[in-house]
């Protein structure tokens, strides 16, 4: 990794909160993926199983504005992510995830919690706590409640280095 890539990664990391805020405004420019949803508003539950390295199912259909409760289960042997976003958001997030691997936060089938909570300066950590995503060790299961915005180019994706590129993503189709 060269210097400029790292700087981008560092910038992306400090930006992730801002990106989410923008998403919450639901701009409708095709660049937003929606916003965190309330459990009480969820119209249905979709179970997404994560394997090494693919999802089941690999596409889902939602209505614009629908709130979905995702139950995400990691049935593989490696750490995987479930992240709702646009391809651009995923690409930016992949830089952060690369940093997490390089710092030993993600080690094959394990997450190093101590490292995640480590203060990187300015109060930044490598915690993975954005509401549009979960990062799971093998065997773990967590929920994401997400309110989709208007139609857009939305994918759910695993941004652990290499996984998205190898095809670990799913399409969100709007009905």
């Amino acid at each position: 990794m060269n210097a400029s890539k790292l700087i981008v990664a560092a910038a992306a990391m400090s930006m992730s909160a801002a990106t989410l805020a923008a998403g919450a405004h639901g701009g409708g420019h095709g660049a937003s993926s929606g916003e965190p949803g309330k459990a009480s508003e969820a119209s249905r539950t979709i179970t997404v199983e994560m394997y090494d390295n693919y999802y089941e199912p690999e596409e889902i259909s939602v209505k614009p504005g629908e709130t979905v409760r995702f139950v995400v289960e990691n049935k593989g042997n490696l750490v995987h992510e479930f992240n709702v976003g646009t391809p651009d958001m995923h690409e930016a997030h992949q830089e952060e995830m690369m940093m997490m691997v390089e710092h030993g936060v993600i080690q094959g089938g394990k997450l190093n919690q101590d490292m995640m909570n480590m203060d990187m300066g300015n109060g930044k950590t490598m915690k993975h706590d954005d509401p549009n995503s979960v990062l799971l060790e093998p065997g773990q299961s967590k929920e994401v409640i997400w309110k989709f915005s208007d139609k857009g180019n939305i994918e759910f994706a695993c941004n652990v280095p290499g996984h998205y590129q190898a095809g670990m993503y799913g399409d969100v189709n709007f009905e």
Partner: peptide
């Protein structure tokens, strides 16, 4: 330790990076 995941890191190229913001980074935890 899993050194293998770190071999690709070439720290020699990191001169352009500004470490000044990273004071809080506690390497002792590593």
């Amino acid at each position: 330790m899993d050194h293998s995941s770190m071999e690709g890191m070439d720290h020699s190229n990191m001169k352009g990076m500004d470490h000044s913001n990273m004071e809080g980074m506690d390497h002792s935890g590593m």
